[in-house]
């Protein structure tokens, strides 16, 4: 199994960088000053899919999506609710109609995600583990 997965990962890395990134270790992070230590998968789901956008402290939570091209976004939703991006888009399309809730903020680049999160104390985003620096704090780690 390990041998196989290593083989697959090697193959993918040799093919494209994006894919290489997508297979990267995605973690949910928040501003280090947010005061939140951990979030459950449900909490993250509610925040990103618009059901309940508040932190356990009661402060507003602001979800930030990575750019679609990065591959991190698809990886994140797959990890979180086991849906592909088409399904996530279809989901949001239905909710546009009533306008009661809206999708997370869409960053244009990965670095924008980092900037946004660094500026927003209630922000919740996801990134590769290697991107996490001192400004951020991992609140949900998908890896076992």
């Amino acid at each position: 199994m390990n041998l196989a997965s290593t083989f697959i990962v090697a193959t993918l890395i040799s093919a494209t960088n994006a894919v290489d990134v997508a297979r990267a270790d995605v973690v949910v992070v928040m501003n280090a000053q947010s005061g939140v230590e951990r979030l459950s998968a449900d909490d993250v789901t509610n925040i990103f899919l618009g059901r309940y956008r508040r932190l356990p402290s009661g402060a507003n939570a602001i979800a930030i999506d990575q750019p679609t091209e990065s591959g991190l976004k698809a990886e994140f939703y797959r990890q979180l609710v086991n849906k592909d991006l088409a399904e996530i888009n279809s989901y949001w399309a239905r909710l546009y109609f009533s306008g009661k809730t809206s999708p997370p903020n869409q960053a244009a680049t990965q670095s924008e995600v980092l900037n946004l999160l660094a500026r927003t104390p209630g922000g919740v985003a996801y990134m590769e583990r290697k991107q996490v620096d001192a400004r951020f704090k991992i609140v949900l780690d998908f890896s076992p």
Binding site: L49, G50, R51, Y91, R94, L95, F97, S98, G99, K100, T101
Partner: peptide, 11 residues
């Protein structure tokens, strides 16, 4: 399901 998930009464 979606309407109920997000409690969207309009939907």
């Amino acid at each position: 399901r979606i309407a109920c998930f997000v409690r969207d009464d309009g939907l």
